[in-house]
Every structure is written in structure tokens, then in C-alpha cells.
Amino acid sequence: MSDILVSEQSAPGSGGSGRPSGRLLEVDDLRVEFRTRDGVAKVINGVTYHVDAGETLAVLGESGSGKSVTAQTIMGILDTPPGFVTGGQVRFHGKDMLRMSDEERRRIRGEGIAMIFQDALSALNPVFTVGFQIAEQFRVRRGMGRAEAKKRAIDMLDQVKIPNAKGRFNNYPHQFSGGMRQRAMIAMSLALDPEVLIADEPTTALDVTVQAQIMDLLAELQRERQMGMILITHDLGVVADVADRIAVMYAGRIVEEADVYDLYAKPAHPYTMGLIDSIPRMDEKGQQLRTIKGLPPNLMNIPPGCPFNPRCPMAQPVCREKVPPLLQVGNARASACHFAEELVNRV
């Protein structure tokens, strides 16, 4: 249902990659379900997005919208069971990773695609030093000796601006502060010079002041290395400065995808409108916060038609019957709403 987007849309920022097969990483009509004791939850229902070298795609959505599960599926770290991929492709340099051998996939991890996680404290192994965990990759993947790996690891710690990198090499994760820990995590994920970096809510667990520092660091590293970056977040505020494009997810689907300016200026989906409206604004002090009423759907029992229809202020009868496909609206943007054209063309 969303082939149109892949084949026709030329996304902004994808120009300069110069790769023969075009796209660096593409997720194509991906479907994932969780089979639990209480039933089958359809977590991803045909997600399609892509990222090219040197661009940042932000994937936005509430918890349970499937944004992290998509990332886990790309990395091949989905917990199976309960999670099962039931359809679609994940293409890296045009080759479907879901049909690769385990060994082929393993080689892509770290070198091709790397990932940083939300909670660095639990994502780092508590019983090994931070230095060991970074140097480990140089030793195992690059076959370096102990001394050289250590040198390279310290160099990585330097690059993520950890003060006294040499001295902190032998520290354990719990001896780092939250921000420093996330920096170490970033150093670890960039060690093998990946082409794509997936950042799964990299700042959610941090203090607000530290959040900005980490985002700046990520953006800087991404520019320097011309990486493709997938930034997963539920925080609209984080996205604006960093992202080139934004994909909004709802109930396991992409409901809108657009250039970051277009999306903020004129959302083409009522859900995106709701999200933007619910950002607290300084100029509306004293007014009540606007929220999207209702709750996200139960993924074991997604309502027929548009999954957003029970909460949508614009819902019409057609919304309860037909699932709106993700269609191109206007220039280089797409929306999965029956009334997308009207929304874009409103004054």
C-alpha cells in the first residue's frame, strides 16, 4: 500500500550519496507481530521508510507506536519469541537483510549499521570497563592487539568529548554520570565507523541540560562522518534542529512523512496536527494545554478503517471503513489521511 512513497518520492537531502543502488537503508512494508499468551499484537503494520548517507530521518511516535520495534528489527535484535517478522524487507545497499545468513547480518552490525540505546546504564555491561567494551570491537572485529585497540578506544572517547579520556578508560559504567555514559555509548557505536546510526531515544533518560549537549554532539558527528542517522524519539522539540525529514508513526504505521519545515508549517495528518498543538507554547501562557483525547489503540484489536479514527477530530464515515494508504501529497511529502489534500491546501 505504500510502494508509491518509495518509488515516487524523492526525499530532500538524499541527493549527494552517489551510490549506484540509490538508497542506503530502506525499510519496505515491514510487518511484525508479538505472539503473547494473551493474543497476537500487530505491532508493525507495513512500515516503509529510508535513510541516505548524510541525512537524518526522525521517527516520531508515542510509546507503543512501533518505532523502536522497527529499529530492533533492522538491527536484528528483536526478541523472538514473542516478536516475529511476518512480512516486508529491510534493504541495506539494496540487499534484503531479513534474508541474509546470520553471519552476513552480524558483519553489518556495528560496521554497516550501529545503534545507541535509550538507557546507557543498562545497555553497557556493568562488569566490564567502558574502555574494554569499546576496545573489544577493535580487537574482535578488526583483529587489533590490546595496545592498539586501547589507543583507538581512547581516541573514540576523545571524539565524543569525554574529558580525561585516558583516565576514564578503566572506569566502569556505574562510575560515569548519565551524560558521560551516553557519550561512551555513542563512542562505542561509532567505533567501527558505521554508515547508518540508529539512535533510539538517545536523550530520554537524561537531564534537560544534558539532552541538548548530547543532541548537538550527535548532530555534529553525523555531519562530520556523513552518516545516515535514524533518530527515534517521542519528543517533537528534539527533532526540529537535527532532522532533515520526519516520519510520524501511529499504531505500527507511518501516518505522515515530510521535510521537517513542511511538517511543522503545515501538517498533513490530524495526528501530526495534534502532536504539534500539544507542544506547550510560551506565547500562550495561562491557557490550558491541548492534548489529543483518547488513548492509542489496542494493538491486539486495531479498529477497522483508519487506526486514528476514534481519536480524530475530523473523522468521517469513510474513516471507519477504509484504511487510508500513505500517498504523496504535494511536493516530496506523504500522508495517510483521506483528507490529506484538504489539509495541505488549507490556507
Binding site: 508479538f34 503473547t36 500487530k42 510509546s63 507503543g64 523502536s68 520495534v69 526478541d79 516478536g83 491486539m300
Partner: peptide, 10 residues
């Protein structure tokens, strides 16, 4: 582990 069931008290 299923984020699917998170936040759906429905």
C-alpha cells in the same frame, strides 16, 4: 517485552 501491551488499559 511487548511494547504492544504497554499503555493500553482499554
Amino acid at each position: 517485552a511487548a511494547p504492544a501491551t504497554a499503555g493500553q488499559p482499554q
